[in-house]
């Protein structure tokens, strides 16, 4: 019995030490929820911003904007939300007081490395989807890139349910997941962001910039539930400095003035 009690005490004290380790009371924590397509450039900005403001700790949560919205709705702590489309932000209950359109991106059709199906353009893609055995990766309707993809389908008068019956479309749950699927050759082609295509070094076949889908704008906002409103505003302001814009441009985004 003594042995068991001492074991429990040892275990509990280990747990307590581990818990206290992670709490850093010196720094102000800012929770930034951002679209998965921003993973690479915001990670670079994080290093710069934290070096300039040593008392601030940026904590990022990258996922599809739709999933992030659900997490916020279900009570996740979040100060700044940067979405890949205006829909998740509009659906959000804790409506924002401070909102800025930050960036612009483009939807592109990319192919896997060898491009065995020899896809040339969107029109060519849709002909081949109806006739041959190829697999297209797109985002589901809750992911902004999926939303834009459906607009492209509508533009070319494509009936998605017919393609679903043929089983030629696979649905990813974030822009990064679809990008990985093309990179791994799991799918023959995919509709993803231009920035993701460039970061992953994928071959772009066509850019949807002829009105096939609405402009892809990344709105950002400080949320009402934020504990650090002023610090959050300061961070958003930093994202609009020429220095931050330079980093965004490096990854292929178009900053909005």
């Amino acid at each position: 019995m003594k042995k068991i009690i001492s074991l429990i005490i040892i275990f509990a004290s280990i747990c307590a030490t581990l818990c206290s380790c992670s709490v850093d009371k010196e720094k102000e924590e800012l929770y930034i929820f951002a679209a998965s397509s921003l993973t690479d450039c915001l990670s670079e900005i994080e290093d710069i911003y934290e070096a300039e403001n040593p008392d601030i700790d940026l904590i990022f949560n990258f996922n599809s904007s739709g999933t992030l919205r659900e997490q916020i709705d279900e009570g996740a702590q979040c100060d700044v939300f940067i979405s890949a489309s205006s829909t998740p932000l509009e659906k959000l209950d804790c409506a924002s007081r401070y909102k800025i359109d930050l960036l612009e991106n483009k939807a592109t059709l990319v192919v896997s490395e060898s491009n065995p199906a020899k896809i040339q353009s969107f029109e060519d893609l849709f002909n081949k989807l109806y006739n041959t055995e190829i697999l297209l990766g797109i985002g589901n309707t809750d992911v902004p890139i999926g939303e834009y993809t459906l607009q492209i389908f509508d533009y070319y008068n494509i009936d998605v349910s017919k393609l679903n019956e043929k089983g030629v479309i696979t649905y990813g749950s974030s822009a990064k997941e679809i990008t990985s699927q093309v990179k791994e050759d799991l799918v023959d082609c995919a509709i993803i962001y231009e920035t993701d295509a460039k970061i992953a070094d994928l071959e772009i076949v066509e850019i949807a910039d002829k009105g096939q889908c609405s402009k892809i704008i990344y709105p950002s906002s400080v949320l009402d539930i934020s504990n650090n409103f002023d610090l959050s505003v300061a961070f958003l302001d930093f994202l609009q400095t020429s220095y931050a814009k330079m980093i965004f441009k490096k990854y292929g985004f178009t900053p909005i003035d």
Partner: peptide, 22 residues
């Protein structure tokens, strides 16, 4: 296997997909 309706969709991936699209 991804989530391909009518090809690789299983109950578990379908539930996740449906939850995602609300």
């Amino acid at each position: 296997a991804g989530y391909i309706p009518n090809k690789t969709a299983t109950i578990s991936t379908t539930v996740y997909h449906l939850w995602q699209i609300n």
